[in-house]
Amino acid sequence: MSAHTTSMRDALYEAPGPRTKLLTLIGTIVSLVLVCIGLALVIQQFRITGQLDAKYWAFYTNMNTWRFLFDGFLGTIKVAAMAAVLSLALGVVLMLGRTSGIKVLEIVCRVIIDFFRGVPSLLLIYFFYLAMPQYGVRLPPFWMITLPVALAASGVLAEVFRAGVNAVPKGQTEAALSIGLTPGKTMFKIVLPQALRIVVPSLISQLVVVVKDTTVAYVVSYPDLMQNARVLLTTHDAVVSVYLVVAIIYILVNFAINQLSIYMARRSGNPIISRTTENPT
């Protein structure tokens, strides 16, 4: 019984021999050269079209630009965080309903899950923004972007959680029941905590989708990062420089989510080590 897991790399490829090593080295050099050429071409193109001119970048020296972007960034974070929390909670609820064993509830939850999974979030946003006000329901812009994004994600998350719950060995449930835990406690104390850790990678991808979905906030005129970027680029007529900077901010945000999730998964309890002992035969 070993305490370390085999990494994906080890699982997919055997240890390289001399010929493979040589090929890998050649591949590395060739691709490095190609990447450099590509970058050079991009920069060259920018220079020819004048995108690197000072006028497109000078406004970044003004603190107000950054303050404005930061306001947008905060808007994005608020929407994304609220949408994430709502969708996680709703995802768990939908998953529990779908696996409850109560036929009607299972069907209802399944329909809800499939609906939100199948409908593009932009369409949901239009529903909140255009359709609902016609019936007298006009939510603040924050909710007109947050709710659709959360609903769209909750369908996917419900399925992610279900996959996680199914991946927890049956013996864990049996052991929990056998010491007298009720089915509910078995789910919340034993199965869900393990399921959550199994699905951390899918959870991260879904949270990244949530952040990206918030970028259509401009539809409802909510001042998120993307909306403020649009204002900025019309003011300064600087498409490339603004979108470049904004793209980097989004990448950083999603990188942070990635790191945070891994950190929280580690912190949420004991380390999960390979489960070679779970189903021996």
């Binding site: 060995p169 013996g171 049996e174 052991a175 905590p193 999960i272 021996p280």
Partner: peptide, 10 residues
């Protein structure tokens, strides 16, 4: 149980 079924996360 045959396969112990200790709670893996505890």
């Amino acid at each position: 149980f045959q396969s112990f079924n200790l709670f893996a996360h505890k």
